[in-house]
Design a protein around this nucleic acid. Structure first.
Lengths: 141, 141
DNA sequence: CAATAAAGATACCAACATGGTATCATATAT
DNA sequence: ATATATGATACCATGTTGGTATCTTTATTG
């Protein structure tokens, strides 16, 4: 799977922050986005460490977007929540396959990965917000 | 990950069968390919059910290739061992995301998946055998 | 025909990743 | 001072996947 749940939640949260423009507490996020509270907190903390949002403690505190939506690229979020985009890691993690360079399959998988990265690295939050008018709304809303 | 360990083992086994041309027992496969015996058996059984190989019981029995290498496509093997190639399944398995059709991200992920499928569906065993002269040889051999 | 060598079927186990929870510490507004 | 927010971190639950074990069935061969 290219996009994990955590990444998806992060996108929704960032989108919400972008639309709000002001400080938003996790309690609000969790209510509006219907995402489990402690999990949302964890995600916001990571976003903080990743430099996407700033946090303010205390009453009235919360999170605020640090970057412009058009500066937030999908690959960066994926990297933060799932590690580097990778589709072709050789099956033999430890004793790495000796023939990485000459392996035909590895080459082909590499091509796919490259393409995937290219597409993903061009997608930014702004695009997502505009392109999918209803991103992040499930059947239940 | 696009290719799981089981699929990789299957490819190696098929390659071995193709090169051998005759009935090969799991015990031989397991020795030559350095793959755990019971796991190899399981994989061969699946390959049998998938119609890639025929089996013969009893002494001297084993598995023999049913198709020509150029007729064995990677996507079919992947489907057999990992299920359908899928990179963009919506995170919300049960209550499926209502906006699949209008979701911008889903569209983009779909494009990637399509490309991946295209590349993979064109790769056949013959190509792998020729292209990667040493496919399936790890550092230890 | 008995013994043996193979596969068929199936249930089980272990390790790891991921989604999700809980708790205690720290900062800040009022 | 107290309430409300985040920071850090450790823990738990579930699913997937790699891997194992066992019992049954079939066929060869002496």
């Amino acid at each position: 799977m290219l996009i994990a749940r955590s990444t998806d939640y992060a996108i929704r949260a960032l989108k919400y922050l972008a639309e709000s423009g002001e400080e938003v507490a996790v309690s609000e996020l969790t209510q509006k986005l219907k995402i489990p509270w402690p999990f949302m907190r964890k995600i916001m903390q990571l976003l903080g460490r990743g430099g996407f949002v700033a946090s303010k403690k205390g009453p009235g505190g919360g999170f605020i977007l640090l970057k412009k939506p058009e500066e937030i690229y999908l690959t960066e979020l994926i990297k933060l929540f799932q590690g580097p985009v990778c589709l072709n890691e050789c099956v033999f993690k430890k004793k790495v396959c000796a023939n990485k360079r000459t392996c035909y399959l590895s080459k082909k998988l590499g091509e796919i990965e490259e393409y995937a990265y290219l597409v993903l690295s061009r997608i930014n939050l702004k695009e997502i917000m505009e392109g999918g008018r209803n991103y992040g709304k499930t059947e239940n809303n």
